[in-house]
Design a protein around this nucleic acid. Sequence first.
DNA 1: GACGAAAAAGAACGAACGTTCGTAAACTCT
DNA 2: AGAGTTTACGAACGTTCGTTCTTTTTCGTC
Lengths: 195, 195
Amino acid sequence: MSKGRQTRDSILHHAATVASVHGLEALSIGRLAELTGLSKSGLFGHFGSKEALQQAVLESVVDDFRAAVVVPALRETRGSARLERLFEGWLAWALADRAGGCPLLGASTELDDRPGRLREYLVDRQRAWLDCVAGAASKAVAEGDFREDLDVVQFAFEFNGIGLAFNFSHRLLGDPRAAGRADSAFRALVAGATR
Amino acid sequence: MSKGRQTRDSILHHAATVASVHGLEALSIGRLAELTGLSKSGLFGHFGSKEALQQAVLESVVDDFRAAVVVPALRETRGSARLERLFEGWLAWALADRAGGCPLLGASTELDDRPGRLREYLVDRQRAWLDCVAGAASKAVAEGDFREDLDVVQFAFEFNGIGLAFNFSHRLLGDPRAAGRADSAFRALVAGATR
DNA sequence: GACGAAAAAGAACGAACGTTCGTAAACTCT
DNA sequence: AGAGTTTACGAACGTTCGTTCTTTTTCGTC
């Protein structure tokens, strides 16, 4: 890997940490420069604009998410087992050792009313994520794990809600039972899809 | 009402609009000043600091929420009817005519990793909100609408998740079926609590 | 209508913001 | 080792930021 890529990756790593706590908009070239030991202009040159930096951070985090959650689940046997793997993977990702919470969830409420390239990219990726969940549920139906008349999009909607509720209770309220609550909710969701 | 309170309320109204789109941190004295037709220093004098302004905005929105959602529901007959009222009220609040989404949800992810007075206040209010839902569920159990062994805190957790999922699908993804999805999820939740 | 208080304006501050530019250093490859 | 290209620096730009003063205007009350 060239020197440039190396530096760029280091910048993105620090940026993702900052963004997990303060959000994408709070990323500042100057602060990020002293965090990485670069000059403002030196750091700036890697991206060309602040928005491009934010985009790069977002893409980098999305790639990590895919590698940490989606790819391992796709290696699991299709059916309800894969869905369980998706859920556990998501929970582990949300609990991962960061300075703050999942940057994608943060960006989702940060960008949800702000048109632009960033938002479009994020919307696309989040749709893909929900499609992934719905697709897995669909496979579970085909495998006979779930009932024939299950609304898989509705399933993905509620699946997502459990994740969001977990994030809310865990990160904001600091509820130590949040993971257990999420687990119970997921089991109830699966039970409702099974019978 | 004195002239001062009047101006202050006007400022808070504009501030809540801005915060609904860009978040609490993005509130800027200068921008808010030209939005309200005041000078920076004139506006500043009403609060004394930016953080005090943010706090005032938060309190103002919380008061609106209570008046629009909680109070009307408490006038409803206790039991599952009141819960339905809470849910509908929440949905209507989230769909209300604002520039952006609900400022309290925005603040919840904006502040969830940032210690301080603002966060503490918000956590307190959100806990109270979940307690309110759990309390209503508890009443529904006592009334015989819900089954005896229902975990009302878990109920509130999932109730909250449905709201968050709605906000996500509606505001970020722009899904026109979001409200219907939320409604189906709520009915499923109630059905699970009933039998 | 005068008087004290409250509200708003105006000017200024130091700091941080994103960005541009020209130049120097470091790396990559033959 | 030398040529060519990345990579990084340092200085400066025009703005905007929150905040602090002092001064002026407006309000509520007797």
